[in-house]
Design a protein around this nucleic acid. Structure first.
Lengths: 131, 131
DNA sequence: GTCCTTGCAAAATTTTTGCACAGGG
DNA sequence: CCCTGTGCAAAAATTTTGCAAGGAC
């Protein structure tokens, strides 16, 4: 019952190398065109598959956590959210559960900072029990 | 040069009403099936259009900020991100720019809290100058 | 009546999957 | 050699758009 072994292919190495060499945070599509400059016949699905694999193996980070589907909230009062890392479900937190990080005094080169978003992560009971 | 006036249609009212009445944070698709139960001929594009409109008007919140495209990061060291609210570009922040909110002691009904994500928002110079 | 909004269908965008073949260990 | 990974094409999933008709105000 060994884990299926992972192989270091030229494609995977190239993708990892490009991503590590960039200081931006590219989309799969952006990375695809970068990598294609060095390996013209690589396919976009290979890029997608490898990014997922590398992210699972914690070699790289996937931003925007799990799931890219947009969700909407009818409550515009400031409040926090927690998202299940498995199913993507989002729930509210009490407003005073933790202080908001300071951002008024924050200076970032090349940006005008306007706000900050805090989102907690966890496992919802339903997912935990179906583990 | 007046703003185009917005009209309160039955569809828009229904969508807003449903969303306000839910304590979850539905996707457009989820909301669509809810709303369709009360107005069977409403179209999915109407739901999408209205959610965007209502979010622009700050009547509701759009979670996951702008853009649903997944981005990847080759740097797995803990560090913060700032995202441009206009173009979606993501940049790094120095690691010590602000303290991480406490989450070890946080209890949320129905969830096992495992972490917290902090993301700053702003306008990148390029977008600011092309306003 | 004006012109914003809708429904429908079609397109665009982003991501995933099936399958035969290639190639890493 | 075995079996994971690749390329390609096709499908799935999500979101946007064009347009004629409908309906707020």
């Amino acid at each position: 019952m060994a884990q299926p072994q992972t192989r270091m292919t030229r494609q995977r190495m190239l993708i990892l190398e490009e991503l590590r060499g960039m200081c931006s945070h590219p989309t799969a599509e952006e990375l695809y065109s970068r990598v294609r400059a060095r390996m013209p016949h690589i396919s976009l699905s290979t890029v997608y598959r490898n990014l997922e694999m590398l992210a699972s193996a914690r070699e790289i980070l996937r931003l925007d956590s799990a799931g890219t589907i947009r969700r909407f909230d009818g409550n515009t009062m400031p409040h926090r959210h927690i998202k299940c890392t498995r199913c993507g479900r989002v729930a509210d937190l009490p407003a005073d559960s933790c202080p908001e990080p300071e951002h008024d005094s924050l200076h970032v080169e090349g940006f005008t900072v306007t706000g900050v978003r805090v989102e907690f992560e966890g496992l919802c009971d339903e997912c935990r029990l179906t583990q």
